[in-house]
Design a protein around this nucleic acid. Structure first.
Lengths: 203, 203
DNA sequence: TCCTCCTAAGTAAACGCTCACTAAGGATAT
DNA sequence: ATATCCTTAGTGAGCGTTTACTTAGGAGGA
């Protein structure tokens, strides 16, 4: 017998190892044997804590869907109508958290592509919130007269799209970052284009 | 015996059915039995035409990577420096082809996530070309003095990102289109923001 | 006749999941 | 103190099924 751990701790280990594997290889691409090996216990332990592989996956998605508040900095900038601050904060935090741990993004994509039942809830809690936050802000700035009249939701999604695509090609498609372009500069480029493009011109 | 077909035709059927299944459920999520059933032949037929499931997958990716020229309209607009025409054509054709058949997009994502060996080549031939086409155009328009100085590649990817994200949330995450917003309007919104954001302002 | 296209009936390995069992440790009774 | 008992965390062997892939041979048209 290797090592006896309290149930809660062992359960946590299983979730952690499984999340990593599911994110890298998908639900169908990951075997319960692999997960057990990664944790360093027998396969039977997996099924002691989770009745099925499917329920282990669901537990992981539910955990990852719990949205630790990512929009704090952006919300602060929003209260003072600091346009650049809002968009920069959103872009920056998306890139920072995803580059620090691509697990979330890959799980999100895998769960949608593989058609997992919780994928919609996952999307709602991680992406829709972003869309709606920016959409609301844009709508308000249009009302203020600082932005041109545009569809706020489509526009918000456009900005998120620029950042997501940047992450997608680097984290999923393996495109190498050129050494001279930092994430900060990239976000700056996006924000500048975006705000210039939204500004209401004199009339 | 159901139906005897010439080898070439049967092979084509297999590729077609398999492409559809692989796009919907991924490589690991699709069984050779399913493919055979979809075609209406026995499983052994799959292995008559393709030595392994893996090689069938590769054949599909190679076929889908053959880039039937998608940039024709945009290239025409580019010769007359019709900025809106170029970006609108690119956005429009991306949305039209993907909505008509989401197979390509899903295969592209699945192959990258599942780590297929041809995924990089697939990405090069389908996405990188787009990035480079727009990047070159932007660079040229900066040289002309019509666009501000920006990183052309980052900027090109930003535009592609807006469109890709639109497709991603609708085709992969199943977000419903609101009835009043057509793809044309969405592309217009993106193009307008983008070109306004890139325009060199008076000095 | 003799290719060509096809199927039925396999195979071994891998899969999710179960079962019978054990070692370790703490509480209690003597 | 120590024997007894129970709970908890664990294992190893293997169940039935599904998987990718194979083999032997049959039917139909030139």
């Amino acid at each position: 017998m290797r090592e006896r751990l309290p149930a809660q701790e062992r359960r946590r280990q299983i979730v952690e190892a499984a999340a990593d594997l599911f994110a890298r290889k998908g639900f169908r691409g990951t075997t319960t044997r692999e997960i057990a090996e990664a944790v360093g216990v027998s396969e039977a332990m997996i099924f002691k804590y989770f009745p099925t592989k499917e329920e282990l996956y669901s537990a992981i998605i539910e955990a990852k869907a719990k949205t630790e508040e990512i929009l704090a900095a952006a919300a602060v900038a929003a209260t003072s109508n600091d346009d650049a601050g809002v968009f920069r904060a959103v872009g920056q935090v998306m890139i920072e958290t995803t580059e620090a741990d691509p697990t979330l993004m890959r799980l999100l994509l895998f769960s949608a592509l593989e058609g997992h039942e919780l994928s919609e809830m996952f999307f709602e809690s991680r992406v829709r919130r972003l869309h709606e936050f920016l959409s609301t802000y844009i709508q308000q700035r249009i009302a203020d007269g600082h932005f041109r009249k545009v569809d706020p939701l489509v526009t918000a999604r456009g900005f998120v799209g620029m950042v997501v695509h940047y992450l997608l090609i680097h984290e999923v498609f393996g495109v190498k970052r050129p050494p001279h372009s930092s994430p900060e500069e990239v976000v700056s480029t996006f924000v500048n284009i975006f705000l210039e493009g939204l500004k209401r011109r004199g009339r």
